[in-house]
Amino acid sequence: MEPVEINAGEYYLRAFRNDDRISDVAALVEIHADPSTARYMNRMIISGPPAAEMFIQFMTMGWEKGYRFSWAVCDAVSGDLVAGLIFHNIDRHLSSAEVTCWTHPAHRGKGVLPRALDAALGWVFGPGEMQRIVYKHAVFNTSSQRVPEKCGFTLEGRLRGSDVIDDQHVDELQWSRLATDPVPEQLP
């Protein structure tokens, strides 16, 4: 499958790239060097350019093989990478996936992820043929909690000790949205 590009108004969703025209390597390293990003995205360590290059190859392969949908969320004017979305754990039989996302520290609190995720869900629930999307976050990560709330996800429950943050087992909240759920009228 070829990567899908999505126009989300002030943001543009495209495949992560590292080629002669566009390279997301430096931005990925910068984003993941942020202590908050590193704390919550501890399963996906992008510690330097080689790791960022490998990440981009991994995301590209996910599109090619149809087992992962991923988007670099970019400012529509400057082209700067401001966030990332990854739909993973795709189960074609159940038509389900889990979404993981992050925002560049300079763009947090501006509503980037809710707008980008809402735009991506339009494709994921349509041509992507998914029926259920899961979103999980640490119980104390209130910034992350605002994303599923704004995007019309339903809180399903608490997953006890399901993640490790700061070398401690922590609980996560699990949210889901179905293709049949109402689309939020207007993102806050």
Rank of each mutant, 00 (worst) to 15 (best):
V77N: 11
L113F: 10
P105I: 09
D80T: 13
V164T: 08
A119L: 05
V99T: 06
S47Y: 01
R115S: 11
S47F: 02
L13A: 07
I56W: 06
V29L: 13
A138R: 04
D19L: 01
A15K: 03
H107V: 09
M59P: 04
F125P: 07
M61C: 04
A106L: 08
A38P: 00
Y12F: 15
R68Q: 12
V29I: 08
Y135N: 07
G48F: 15
R146P: 11
R43L: 10
M44S: 13
P127R: 08
L113G: 12
D181T: 07
F87K: 01
E64Q: 08
K136C: 12
G126H: 14
Q131T: 03
G157D: 11
V147W: 08
S144I: 02
S47I: 10
D75I: 04
R177E: 12
N89K: 04
Q131S: 14
I31T: 08
Q174I: 13
S36P: 09
G126R: 15
R39N: 00
S78Q: 01
Q57A: 05
E156A: 10
R177I: 03
T103D: 03
P127E: 15
A26S: 04
A138T: 12
H104T: 03
T100E: 03
W123F: 15
E53F: 15
H104M: 12
I56P: 07
D80E: 15
H107I: 02
S70K: 04
A38I: 00
D166L: 05
I46D: 09
A38F: 00
V29P: 15
T154R: 15
G66L: 12
T154L: 14
M41A: 04
L155H: 13
G157C: 02
R132A: 06
D19M: 11
H104K: 02
R177F: 07
V82T: 06
V73M: 13
P127W: 01
